[in-house]
Simulated assay, not measured.
Amino acid sequence: MHIQEDNQPFDDINVTPMLDLAYVLLVIFIIMTTASVQGVKVALPKSKMTASLAKAHIKAITISERGDMFLDAYPVTPEQLEERLLQLKRGNPGQAVVVKGDARAQYVKVMQVLEVLKKVDITEIGLVTSRAAS
């Protein structure tokens, strides 16, 4: 063990507290970036009649303006969507699904999703819209 005299300058720096701070900041950054991912933003079509679909374990299928499909926030192809919905249906026979289609999305993409839902026998389906101005 090396004993420092009072008049001698330190010749090494303890970087442990600085590394601890860097790790804490890294963890905070990771938590904040994953918490902000809540779904895919789409411009919903307007409707004067809206109903609340407040049910537990509802899965959201989103169709973007470009026609990309997402199950919750994860991109999927129609085949992957069918496979994942079958898995969900096995786990929960009364699985509810909402379809969030962008107002400018191609109608054929919405129909593809509805066909997949029919194929896997999911009957609890909701279409998400935003409230139109009166």
Results as ranks from 00 to 15, higher is better:
1 M>E: 09
1 M>T: 10
2 H>E: 11
2 H>I: 08
2 H>V: 12
3 I>Q: 11
5 E>D: 11
5 E>S: 13
7 N>A: 12
8 Q>Y: 13
8 Q>D: 14
10 F>P: 09
11 D>M: 08
11 D>A: 09
12 D>W: 07
13 I>C: 05
14 N>Q: 03
14 N>L: 04
15 V>Y: 12
16 T>N: 11
17 P>N: 06
17 P>V: 02
18 M>T: 14
20 D>Y: 12
21 L>E: 15
22 A>E: 14
23 Y>S: 15
24 V>Y: 15
26 L>R: 15
29 F>W: 09
30 I>D: 10
31 I>S: 12
32 M>K: 06
36 S>V: 08
36 S>H: 05
37 V>Y: 04
38 Q>N: 04
38 Q>L: 06
41 K>F: 08
41 K>G: 05
43 A>R: 05
43 A>I: 04
45 P>K: 05
46 K>Y: 10
48 K>R: 09
48 K>I: 11
49 M>Q: 10
50 T>A: 04
51 A>Y: 11
51 A>F: 11
51 A>Q: 13
52 S>L: 10
52 S>G: 06
54 A>G: 02
56 A>R: 13
56 A>L: 11
57 H>L: 04
57 H>F: 03
58 I>D: 03
59 K>R: 14
60 A>Q: 07
61 I>W: 00
62 T>F: 00
62 T>V: 00
63 I>E: 01
66 R>I: 08
66 R>T: 13
67 G>E: 03
67 G>S: 03
70 F>M: 01
70 F>Y: 08
71 L>A: 01
72 D>T: 03
72 D>L: 07
72 D>C: 04
75 P>S: 02
75 P>F: 02
77 T>K: 01
78 P>I: 05
79 E>M: 04
80 Q>W: 07
80 Q>N: 03
80 Q>D: 05
82 E>P: 04
82 E>F: 02
82 E>C: 02
85 L>C: 03
85 L>A: 00
85 L>K: 01
87 Q>N: 12
88 L>F: 06
88 L>R: 01
92 N>C: 05
94 G>D: 15
95 Q>P: 03
95 Q>I: 03
99 V>C: 04
101 G>Q: 13
102 D>L: 01
103 A>T: 04
106 Q>G: 07
106 Q>S: 14
106 Q>T: 10
106 Q>Y: 11
107 Y>G: 13
108 V>N: 13
108 V>S: 15
108 V>G: 07
109 K>H: 02
110 V>I: 09
112 Q>H: 08
112 Q>C: 00
113 V>N: 00
113 V>F: 00
114 L>E: 12
115 E>L: 09
116 V>D: 01
116 V>N: 01
117 L>S: 06
117 L>D: 05
118 K>C: 07
119 K>Y: 08
121 D>M: 11
126 G>P: 01
127 L>G: 07
128 V>F: 03
129 T>A: 06
129 T>I: 07
131 R>A: 12
131 R>V: 12
132 A>Q: 10
134 S>K: 14
134 S>A: 15
